[in-house]
């Protein structure tokens, strides 16, 4: 399949990419890994007149740890993060990175591109919402830092203006006694999940839940923070009754649509099960245990 014709520009720096966006106007788009944009262009669901390739900008794929804050350049590939020290210190990041699609897609797809695409079924929008995450955007007026909650506005819609580009994703490292997990269920490796859940818990005395973030993916137009479910755990012991309350609240917060991946009812049940399992794994990790978790699919 051929994409519609377009003209191709290679940006040597972020500033040049912004300048090109200004000059080329609204029919131009930035391309990073291209793992969402290229399929859309081949199906002619996207027909940009120009592409601005940022893959050749030096240093944009670096990961920095700066005073308790992890900084991921927009071009950090999922596979880079999968094999990074950041994934070891913050396991929820590893769960997410190591389970996105398959090896080939993870080698090419980027964290910045995934957030800028804002696909409701994307994994990063869900996992990163369970942490304190902000997105650095560069435009003609300079740089601004937008909290992830405000960055993703709707399905495929972000706070980026046409002339802005994502340059970095910043994640505050969770405190001591905190653990998280991102679980997703998909039918096979290369496809988007049917549902996903991200949970980050901070425990006191190994059992009282000091803080909780519970995020649902693929069951709404954006990732959903299940705030009532979080409230059901915050300040309380992590026992069976409180977990059940939280899971019920999470299920109620889901707003799934029926599609080829499953009916709305099925997805609601599935996301509840994923939240329950993620709470269990997050708690074990918060207590210092090493637990393998991530995407579940046939054959894994």
């Amino acid at each position: 399949m051929y994409a519609a014709p377009f003209s191709y520009f290679r940006a040597a720096s972020l500033q040049e990419a912004v300048k090109l966006l200004q000059e080329l106007g609204e029919d131009a788009r930035v391309i990073a890994g291209g793992q969402s944009l290229i399929p859309l262009m081949k199906m002619r669901m996207a027909r940009p007149a120009a592409l601005i390739d940022i893959n050749f900008i030096p240093g944009l794929g670096d990961i920095h740890n700066s005073k308790g804050e992890l900084r991921f350049g927009a071009l950090v590939r999922h596979a880079d993060l999968e094999h990074s020290a950041a994934g070891v210190t913050v396991p929820i990041l590893h769960d997410c990175a190591a389970g996105i699609a398959d090896v080939q897609v993870r080698n090419q797809g980027t964290i910045g591109g995934s957030l800028a695409e804002a696909d409701p079924s994307g994994d990063w929008g869900t996992a990163l919402l369970a942490l304190d995450t902000s997105v650095v955007c560069l435009g003609p007026e300079g740089e601004r830092t937008v909290p992830l909650e405000e960055f993703i506005k709707d399905a495929y819609t972000t706070a980026l203006t046409h002339e802005e580009i994502v340059t970095e994703v910043r994640v505050k490292a969770p405190p001591k006694g905190s653990g998280g997990a991102h679980l997703a269920f998909k039918r096979s490796a290369p496809v988007y999940p049917t549902a996903s859940a991200s949970v980050q818990l901070t425990l006191a005395d190994h059992n009282t839940c000091k803080d909780a973030r519970i995020v649902l993916g693929c069951v709404g137009l954006t990732a959903i923070r299940a705030k009532e479910a979080e409230a059901g755990l915050r300040g309380k012991p992590l026992d069976e009754k409180n977990i059940r309350t939280a899971v019920d609240a999470a299920r109620a917060a889901a707003d799934p649509q029926s599609d080829m991946r499953g009916s709305a009812d099925y997805k609601r049940v599935l996301v509840g099960a994923l939240v329950k399992r993620a709470i269990g794994i997050a708690a074990r990790r918060a207590r210092g245990e090493s637990v393998d978790a991530g995407h579940e699919y046939a054959g894994r």
């Binding site: 994409a3 191709y8 290679r10 391309i31 291209g34 793992q35 290229i38 399929p39 592409l51 390739d53 893959n55 596979a79 090896v103 080939q104 897609v105 080698n107 090419q108």
Partner: peptide, 13 residues
């Protein structure tokens, strides 16, 4: 050094 799906990359990339 990394596998990619060559149907999902424009040649100039």
């Amino acid at each position: 050094g990394r596998t990619v799906k060559s149907c999902t990359l424009f040649a100039p990339m």
